[in-house]
Design a protein around this nucleic acid. Structure first.
Lengths: 202, 202
DNA sequence: CCGCACCTTGTACGTCAGTACAATATTTTT
DNA sequence: AAAAATATTGTACTGACGTACAAGGTGCGG
């Protein structure tokens, strides 16, 4: 199974992805097109604007290749856009290597990989209604989870520090650890991850 | 991978299914329950009435087992019911053995197996009523709403500027206007407001 | 015509967020 | 006992963020 990550702009594959597919290539759009690179699965990040147009063109270029859209901050809108544009998978780029491999196998065999929450959303809209709210990933330590809960209500570092009775510096330390563990770059993306209610957990 | 076909009433596995999974078992509901049969995948036919209630009970009985609903006459309504009841697969019981095996592998790895037409249908209906981020407070101007949508996906000012083809300064201007109109102090609280979080409820 | 709302951009400044170097102590795991 | 994870805090730096001064352009209703 040949994997190819299409690098567009800032949309780079995560270290976990490289770990999951050591033999895979990550190529820029231009190189992939001119070299007529073959692939069974084409992965495409959403960091760069216009990814959905590129995605729609993939079947024409990489004949028969399945497409997986990789997002750092999965959300319903983006997921729908991805599926609408022909993707068979939509997942978090910072998912574990094992999970990324599972995604690959699922998609490679003709299945769809989408978060169960998103699926539930689809079902519900196909009938009606909408709920969804998530708990904290258990890879976070207890203290980190506390900090995460605080920031998820919109508090600043200073406020969190006062609330937990620690230094702002310590809050920053926890924050950095959380970012690293969840593969987000700032507090906003963290909140979206925690509340965003959709697609492939890490 | 242990396959189990749950025989209920007239819902028998097809010869093709037996061919695909020679080592699999097909048991009646009673036997499966009393014998505490273990399985990775439970297949369930739709020929017998009440299959959806049985399906919903599967996770409790066969802990962790994925469910595939098998229909002889696949149709949208039934597929939705199956997915709603927790199935990860919905397929034609008379599909080829090879295809059934693919279904098994997809579902076994956490993927969904559903026909592309059904998927398209789901996308279409979901897109039709996809407010979520679309229903922004109407006090926002058109442009402000665009910016708000961008920031609600975790993008930075610089990224939004590039995406909308304007200056970062302009993004800041819109952002400030949004904050003032909605009574929030920063982008994080804005996102919480837009996503129904617990930010500064005026 | 003139006000009003909207879109756009500039410079400058203060604050906040995040990280790059840390270090120390406690607890848990191996 | 050694190793690893966790919790805590420090200084200092860069860059992002938000705002306070602007200002010039478009379009629309009074």
């Amino acid at each position: 199974m040949r994997n190819l990550f299409l690098v567009v702009g800032a949309a780079q594959p995560s270290p976990r992805w490289h770990e999951a597919f050591p033999d895979a290539q990550s190529l820029t759009q231009d190189v992939a097109l001119t070299a007529r690179t073959q692939a069974d699965i084409v992965w495409l990040g959403t960091a760069a604007p216009g990814w959905e147009r590129l995605l729609a063109a993939i079947p024409g270029v990489f004949g028969g290749a399945a497409a997986v859209v990789v997002s750092n901050i999965p959300n319903e809108r983006e997921a729908l856009l991805a599926l609408k544009s022909g993707a068979h998978g939509y997942c978090n780029g910072w998912a574990s290597p094992r999970q990324l491999q599972a995604v690959a196998q699922v998609v490679n065999r003709g299945g769809y990989w989408i978060g169960s929450e998103l699926m539930n959303y689809l079902i519900k809209t196909a009938n009606k209604k909408l709920p969804a709210l998530g708990e904290l990933p258990e890879e976070l330590s207890e203290r980190e989870a506390e900090v995460a809960r605080e920031v998820a209500t919109g508090r600043s570092n200073k406020e969190i520090a006062a609330s937990l009775g620690i230094t702002e510096r310590t809050v920053k330390a926890h924050m950095g650890a959380i970012f690293a563990k969840l593969g987000v770059r700032d507090r906003l993306q963290l909140v979206l991850r925690l509340r965003g209610g959709s697609a492939g957990e890490a």
